[in-house]
């Protein structure tokens, strides 16, 4: 499957294959023509992938074949033991987590979990958590705090689930509680947006010391479709909304909200998963090393400063 913006690449690729087939069949030497097209393909790839528009990144970030939290956990950590449940109501499969070792040291890993296919997506509610999911995450974070383990969060959600039961069980309170409690953690917290960072549901795993974003990940207060329909009264203007909202990794880095951008393989994380995992690994190692130099109070202070400094306003004479 290809994205609509990849059509020129698909067409070139098909042309190359056709020529190759024709050359073999007719025993004709078309090496020069084929090489020309192959060079053109490489140029075109760079042209497209290096200038992705915000909406195109949204499409990549949401892609079903894009690696999910579970795949990062499997690839980067050892001895992973998944823990279930919020001790209140249920085990929300839209959020997963547990303990593992990272480079030989214990850590707690938590993340939103989208499905890897339609059936899985239904079981995991497309990665949109109920309060139970956020409460499970908080329970695991408090456990990490007690045992002095760093916390790695993977953010990948359209947002908190807008449902009846979610409201009844306190969707707002569960997110709000995570924000406040994460502010008080005395262990390093690294949050990595691997796909879509959707609003409050993303932030509930995102009050951190270091916010890292994959190159094509997005993080937004509202989906581009939602913003287009509310602000421009037309959901079809999602591309424009995606531009205006400033949702890309680069935007967040420039706004000093994201601390680092993790480069993706050309065309997106799904094109070369092992390469993607190794880039993420490198970044976790780098930031964890820096944070481990700080004691508990300094980590809290670091988080306090990070968030207190976000915002742009003016002070006029009263």
């Amino acid at each position: 499957m290809a994205f609509s913006f990849e059509r020129p690449l698909v067409e070139l690729d098909e042309k190359i294959k056709e020529l190759q087939k024709y050359a073999t069949k007719n025993k004709q030497d078309l090496t020069r023509e084929i090489e020309f097209l192959e060079r053109k393909l490489v140029d075109k790839q760079e042209e497209i992938y290096n200038h992705l528009k915000p909406w195109q990144r949204v499409e990549i970030a949401r892609f079903i074949e894009r690696p999910t939290t579970q795949l990062y956990i499997d690839a980067l950590f050892e001895d992973y033991i998944e823990f279930y449940g919020d001790r209140v109501y249920s085990d929300d499969k839209a959020v997963i987590g547990g303990i593992a070792t990272y480079k030989g040291k214990p850590v707690t890993v938590i993340g939103h979990q989208r499905g890897e296919n339609t059936k899985d997506n239904i079981a995991r509610n497309f990665g949109m958590a109920h309060p139970d999911g956020y409460r499970k995450a908080l329970r695991l974070m408090k456990q990490a705090d007690k045992f002095n383990r760093p916390i790695i969060c993977f953010v990948d959600t359209k947002g908190a689930y807008p449902g009846k039961a979610a409201e009844e069980r306190g969707q707002s309170e569960s997110i709000a509680r995570n924000l406040v409690e994460m502010a008080g953690l005395k262990v390093p917290v690294i949050s990595i947006v691997i796909g879509e960072g959707g609003s409050g549901g993303a932030l509930a795993l995102g009050v951190c010391n270091r916010l890292l974003m994959l190159e094509n990940a997005t993080y937004s207060v509202i989906s581009p479709e939602g913003a287009a329909s509310i602000l421009f009264k037309d959901a079809a203007l999602k591309e424009i909304a995606a531009e205006s909202l400033k949702i890309t990794a680069n935007d967040l880095f420039e706004l000093k909200i994201a601390d680092d951008i993790i480069k993706e393989p050309l065309g997106g994380a799904h094109k070369d998963k092992p390469a993607m995992f190794s880039s993420v690994d490198e970044m976790i190692e780098k930031h964890l090393k820096e944070l481990k130099a700080l004691d508990g109070d300094a980590l809290k202070e670091d988080r306090f400063e990070k968030y207190m400094n976000i915002g742009q306003f003016e002070e006029i004479e009263e």
């Binding site: 709000a176 924000l179 406040v180 937004s220 207060v221 909202l245 949702i247 967040l252 976000i310 742009q312």
Partner: peptide
């Protein structure tokens, strides 16, 4: 809710007020 015209900055205000609230709580 959040002020959409300020995009991700408005979302981050939720965290900002929370870190300040936490100190008051502590």
């Amino acid at each position: 809710g959040a002020r959409m015209q300020e995009g991700i900055i408005s979302l981050m205000q939720m965290a900002k007020v929370s870190v300040a609230a936490k100190r008051h709580d502590e």
